[in-house]
Design a protein around this nucleic acid. Structure first.
Lengths: 201, 201, 201, 201
DNA sequence: TATGAATGAGCTTTCATTCAT
DNA sequence: CATGAATGAAAGCTCATTCAT
C-alpha cells in the first residue's frame, strides 16, 4: 500500500539485476538496456529509479559494502580476554567473510573487480571500506596488547593492515577458485598460525 | 639512422606519455587525443605505433609487469640456510618492491587500479603476475621447510599467498600514502615479525 | 498500433530517403548524416533500422532488384505460339522495363551506377540479376525454337545474353537521356527488327 | 638521358602497378600505400608523379580507354561495299575487342567495374567512350545503308547503340567467364547472325 | 629525387539519456 | 507509472596528403 515501499522493492529488484549483469559482463561492457533486458523491463523504467548508469554502480557497491560491514559490527573487539578467545574471534570473522563472498559471488565480483572500472571516486570508496576493516582489526590488536596476550612491541597500525591484506587475499582467492569450505579452512588455519605463532620452527 | 631504433624510441615515448595520462585520468577517461596532446603529437601518429587504445593499455601493463618481475628473478629461493638468512632475503625483496612502486608511481597506479578498468583479459593477466609472486614465495617457504628452519606443518601453498597478500597490501598502502621510507620500514618489520614469530606475547 | 507495422513504415521511409540521397550524391559521397538530414531525423535513428551504411545500400539495391524482377515474372515464356505473338511479348517486356526505370529514376541510378561503387559482393549481386534476365530470355528463345518460329541453329545461350545486352543498353540510354516515350518506342522497334529479321536489306 | 623520358617511364610503371592493385582490390579499397608497396617504392614518391588518388584512377581509365579506342580507328567504316565485306569487318572488330579485354584483364576490370566506384565524372567519361563506340557503329550502318546492303528503314542511331550493347555484353561476359576463344567465337557468330538475318526461321 | 613519419579532417558507430505517448 | 523511439555527443580509427630530410 505505501507507495514508498513499492518503490523500494522495485529499486532493489533493479539493483539485483544490475549486480548480476555487471558481474557477468563488467561495468563498462554493461549497457543500461542489458540490465533492462535481464529484468524484462523497458530501459526507460530504469531511469525512474536511478539517476544514471554511474548511480547504479555506486548503489551496487554500496549494497555490497553494507553487507560486508554488517558481518563484523556485532563482534566486540574488546570481548577477547585470552589468546584463545582471540583465536576464536579470528575464526569467526574469517568464516563470515569467506562465506559471504562465496555465497554472493556477484557482489564479490563487483567488490573485487568491477568497482575499479567505474571511476576514481568509486575506487576510493572501495579503499575506504578496506581501510575500515583495517581500523577494526586495529582495535582487536589494541585490545590484545592491553590485555597482554599480544606482544607489547607490535606496530599495531601496520600489522592490522597486513592481516587485512592476508584476509582479503584469501577471500579473493577462494572466491576465484570456488572450491569452498576446504580451501576456506586452510586459509583460516594458515592465517591464524601466522598471526599467533609465526612460521619459525 | 637505424630505423628500428627510432621506432623503439618513439614507441617508448608514447608509452611513457600514455602511462602518465592513464595514471592521471584513468583508462576509461583517457582519450587517444589526450595522450596525443600530452605528447604534442597528432593523434594519427599514435596509431602508427600502437594498434588501438586497448593495445597501449596492455603495453603499459606489460611494461609494469616486466619491471616488477625483474625485481625478484635474481634472488635465489634456495640461498637462505638459516632463519636469519631468510629474514634478510625478506628485507631485500620487500625493499625492492616498496621502492619500485614508490619510484614509479604511474606504473603503480596502472598496476593497482587502472588495469582492472580495461577488460577481463587484462585483469586476468594482472592476477597471473600476482600469482607468479605467490609461486615464488612458495619456493622460499619450501626451502625453509626442507632446511628445517620453518615449521614442518606449514600449509605452504596457502601461507605463501597469505604472505603475498600482506606484501601487496603494504606496497599499495605506502604507494597511496606516499610517505616513503619510514612507512616502508615499518611494513617490512611488521611483516617479518608476523612471519617469523607471530604476534603472541 | 502493431509495432512491427510502424517499424516497417519507418524502415521504408529511411530506405526512400537513402535511395534519393545515394542517387543524387553517389554511394561513396553519401554520409549517414546526409541521409538523416534529408529525412529530418537524428542520425542515430538511422542505426535503429539499419545495421550500417553498407546494409542500406544492399537494401536499396535489393528493393530495386525485386521491383525489376516483378516486372517479368507474370509473363509466360511458353505462351507465344507464333513470331507475331513473340513480337508482342517483346513489346510488353521492353515497355515495362523502359517505363519502370524512367519512372523510378533513383532506383535506376542505383541499379546502373551506384551499386558498383559499394563493394565486390554487391556488384556480383547485380550481375546475378542481369544473368537472371538472361535465363528468362533464354526460355523465350527455347520456346520459339521448339515451336519452330525461330531458327533451329540459334545459339540460344549466347543469343539470349546478346538480346539482354541490347535491352539494358536501351533502358540505360533512355534513362540517361530522359526523353521518354518516343525514344523508348524507337528502341523497342529497333531491337524487335534486329531480333526478328536482322538488318540486311 | 632526356629527363622527361625517365619521368614518363616512371609514371607508366606506377600506372601499371596501380591498375593491378585497383583491379584486384577495387578502387575504394585501394590505398596509396598498397600501390606503393606493390611497386616497392615509397608512397611519397607516388605524389611526385600523380596529383592525388583520384588522378591515378583517371589515368588508369584514360589508358584503358585509349587502348580500346586504338582498336578500331584503323578500320574504315566506309570500306565495306557488300554485306559480306561488312560481316568480315564485324568479325574483325569483335575479335579485337574480345581479345583485348581477355588479354588485359586488369584494364577490363577497371573499365567494366572499378571506374564507377570513383566518382560521377569518371562514370561520365566511361559513358562517353561507350558512346564513342556507338557513333563508330553508326558510321558503319550509315555506310551500309548508303551502299544499299542494309535496309533503308533502319533507325541507325538506335540500332547502332543496340549493337553496341550486344558487343559490350559479350565482351564483359567472356571476360568474366574467362573461357576464351570458344566463347568469343560463339558471341561473334551469334551477334553477326542477329545483325545480318535476325532470328526468324 | 625519393622517402616515410607526421598529420588531422572526417567518417562511422555506440549508447546513455530524454520525453511524448 | 512504464515504455522504447529518438537523439546526438563523443569516441575510435583510417588514410590521403604534406614536407623535412
Amino acid at each position: 500500500m505505501p507507495n514508498a515501499e513499492l518503490v523500494r522493492k522495485r529499486r532493489e529488484q533493479i539493483l539485483r539485476g544490475a549486480s548480476k549483469v555487471i558481474a557477468e559482463r563488467g561495468y563498462q561492457e554493461t549497457n543500461i538496456s542489458d540490465i533492462a533486458k535481464e529484468l524484462g523491463i523497458g530501459h526507460g523504467t530504469f531511469y525512474r529509479y536511478f539517476d544514471n548508469k554511474r548511480h547504479i554502480a555506486e548503489q551496487v557497491l554500496s549494497y555490497a559494502v553494507d553487507q560486508v560491514t554488517q558481518l563484523i559490527v556485532d563482534i566486540d573487539p574488546d570481548a577477547a580476554d585470552t589468546l584463545s578467545d582471540y583465536a576464536n574471534q579470528l575464526n569467526e570473522i574469517g568464516s563470515r567473510l569467506f562465506d559471504f563472498f562465496n555465497n554472493n559471488r556477484e557482489l564479490a565480483q563487483v567488490f573485487f573487480f568491477e568497482a575499479y572500472g567505474v571511476d576514481r571516486d568509486l575506487t576510493i570508496k572501495l579503499q575506504e571500506v578496506i581501510e575500515l576493516f583495517g581500523t577494526y582489526v586495529e582495535r582487536y590488536l589494541q585490545n590484545g596488547c592491553q590485555k597482554g596476550y599480544l606482544r607489547q612491541d607490535l606496530d599495531i597500525e601496520i600489522t592490522a593492515r597486513a592481516i587485512n591484506g592476508m584476509i582479503f587475499a584469501g577471500v579473493l582467492r577462494t572466491f576465484q577458485k570456488g572450491n569452498g569450505e576446504k580451501e576456506r579452512d586452510r586459509w583460516i588455519k594458515s592465517i591464524s598460525t601466522l598471526m599467533l605463532s609465526g612460521m619459525a620452527s
